[in-house]
């Protein structure tokens, strides 16, 4: 089955620059300091933030009173087609590190010197772009917790597929790839600070020709900006509902 039709439409009817339906919600639970739910198409992720609190991790004791962001990603057993036997494995640990790194760049560390912020992410359903969705959900949970940040951190994926009309050397970049698109082509995850225009995380484990990389990266950055609009609208909406302004809680 072609990933991109002759008319330039993808399997789910989107154009190459069209993101999946994005929905998010802030504040699901009482116990964590902040919690958020993020849905990008069929990918659903739940994030909660505990902290800032006294630093306990080994990493923080070696540093010079820096703020430490830790992250633990786990998956629901039925989140993808095959049942998973373990909620946490090597792959979720790799994702955790990536998410923690991206968040570390966004949190205003100097404000929380010597503190630790724990982020727990639960993947409810996985259909491509899981890492990106985890970063977005974690960012919203940080905001809900009232943690000071330099900027939002938003993440999006992009993929490259051969265009149907041409030979396989010609490729076309797709934004926000779902599982079937990323497994056939490639998946580049990019996280950025949308207002500062800085890239904070970039991840791919598929071969991609250098000549195609620019187009794919641009497409992912475009996706990040689109997601930022959506996430910011939801945050504004949340603040309005709670008669709050954006400041430290």
């Amino acid at each position: 089955m072609e990933l991109l039709s002759n008319e330039g439409l993808r399997q789910d009817g989107r154009t190459t620059t069209c993101l999946r339906a994005m929905k998010c919600k802030l504040g699901l639970y009482d116990r964590p300091n902040g919690s958020a739910f993020m849905q990008m198409g069929n990918t659903q992720v739940l994030a909660s933030v505990y902290g800032p609190k006294e630093a306990r991790s080994v990493k923080s004791t070696t540093g010079l009173g820096e703020c430490v962001v830790t992250c633990a990603v786990s998956r629901v057993a039925a989140c993808s087609a095959e049942r998973l036997r373990k909620p946490r494995d090597q792959r979720t640990r790799a994702t955790s590190n990536l998410v923690a790194g991206a968040l570390q760049a966004a949190v205003r560390g100097s404000k929380y010197a010597g503190s630790q912020i724990d982020v727990f992410v639960q993947v409810i359903q996985a259909d491509g772009g899981v890492t990106a969705c985890c970063i977005n959900a974690a960012c919203l949970a940080l905001l809900h917790a009232g943690i000071e940040v330099n900027d939002y951190v938003t993440a999006c994926t992009a993929s490259a597929v051969p265009t149907a009309a041409h030979t396989s050397t010609q490729t076309c970049a797709l934004v926000d790839a779902c599982q079937s698109e990323s497994s056939g082509g490639c998946e580049v995850t990019v996280a950025m600070l949308p207002n500062k225009q800085r890239i904070v995380a970039l991840h791919t484990c598929h071969p991609l020709h250098q000549s195609q990389f620019d187009a794919v990266l641009d497409m992912a950055l475009f996706g990040c900006q689109q997601l930022y609009q959506g996430m910011h609208a939801e945050v504004q909406n949340f603040l309005k509902q709670h008669h709050a302004i954006m400041s430290h809680r």
Binding site: V76, A77, A78, I124, Q125
Partner: peptide, 22 residues
């Protein structure tokens, strides 16, 4: 959940449970 054969989410005040059957 679309990926499970059966699923249910139950919330009772501050308890939240997600059950999936595969």
């Amino acid at each position: 959940l679309d990926t499970a054969n059966g699923s249910a989410r139950v919330r009772l005040h501050r308890t939240d449970i997600l059950v999936t059957v595969k």
